[in-house]
C-alpha cells in the first residue's frame, strides 16, 4: 500500500514544471481560489435554499447554476491534485509523508469524503427529486434541511482546514 501511494503521489513531470516556471505554482493557487468561489459559493447558496432560506426561489431554477459549481470543482480538483503530486519540488518531502502526518490535510480529505456521502444521500434518498417539485414559497422537507446543513458546514470546514495545511506538519516552505 505504501509503495503504491508513494508511486502515484509523486509526479516528476509536475515537479519539473514547478521548478522550471516560477509562475506555475501561483497560477495553480489562483485557479484553486477562483474554483473555491464558484464551488463553495454556489453550492452554499443552494444549501441555504435547501435549509429554507430565500423560499421565493424555486430550487429547480437554482439548479441551473450548478454547472458553474461543477466548473469550480474542476478548477479546484485539478489544481489540488497538481499541488499534491508536485509538492516535492517546493518542500523536498514526499507527498506520502505529508499525507500521513499533516492533520489539516487529513481532515480536509475526511471532510471531502463526508461531503461525497452527503451528496450521494441527496440523490439516493430521493430528496433531490422531492425538492425539484417545490414551487415558490414552499418549505423544504426536514431531510433536505439536514443535507443542506451538513453540506454547508463541511464545505466551510473544508476551506478552514485547507487554508491551514501550510501550518501543518511537513509543509514548511510553502507560501501561506
Amino acid at each position: 500500500m505504501e509503495s503504491v501511494l508513494r508511486y502515484i503521489l509523486r509526479w516528476p513531470s509536475v515537479e519539473r514544471l514547478i521548478i522550471a516556471y516560477a509562475w506555475f505554482w501561483p497560477l495553480l493557487e489562483v485557479m484553486h481560489f477562483v474554483g473555491i468561489v464558484l464551488l463553495v459559493g454556489i453550492v452554499g447558496m443552494f444549501d441555504l435554499r435547501l435549509m429554507g432560506f430565500a423560499k421565493e426561489i424555486p430550487i429547480s431554477s437554482l439548479r441551473r447554476l450548478l454547472p458553474w459549481a461543477v466548473f469550480g470543482s474542476v478548477l479546484t480538483f485539478t489544481s489540488g491534485l497538481l499541488f499534491v503530486t508536485g509538492v516535492y519540488a517546493n518542500v523536498e518531502i514526499h507527498a506520502y509523508i505529508i499525507l500521513m502526518n499533516n492533520t489539516y490535510l487529513q481532515l480536509k480529505l475526511l471532510f471531502l469524503g463526508i461531503l461525497g456521502l452527503n451528496l450521494a444521500a441527496f440523490y439516493v434518498t430521493g430528496v433531490s427529486r422531492e425538492v425539484d417539485e417545490l414551487g415558490v414559497g414552499q418549505d423544504t422537507p426536514t431531510m433536505a434541511k439536514v443535507i443542506g446543513g451538513v453540506s454547508l458546514f463541511f464545505w466551510l470546514a473544508t476551506v478552514y482546514v485547507g487554508r491551514l495545511i501550510v501550518w501543518g506538519k511537513f509543509t514548511e516552505g510553502l507560501t501561506p
Binding site: G41, S60, L62, L65
Partner: peptide, 29 residues
C-alpha cells in the same frame, strides 16, 4: 481563513448576480 470566507461570501453572491444578468439560470426570480 477569515479573508477566504469573506471572499467566498462577497464574490460568489456577486458572481451569481452577474451570471443571472448574463442570462444564465434565468428561472431564478
Amino acid at each position: 481563513v477569515a479573508h477566504a470566507y469573506g471572499m467566498i461570501l462577497l464574490v460568489s453572491v456577486s458572481v451569481v448576480i452577474i451570471l443571472r444578468t448574463l442570462g444564465y439560470a434565468s428561472g431564478v426570480p
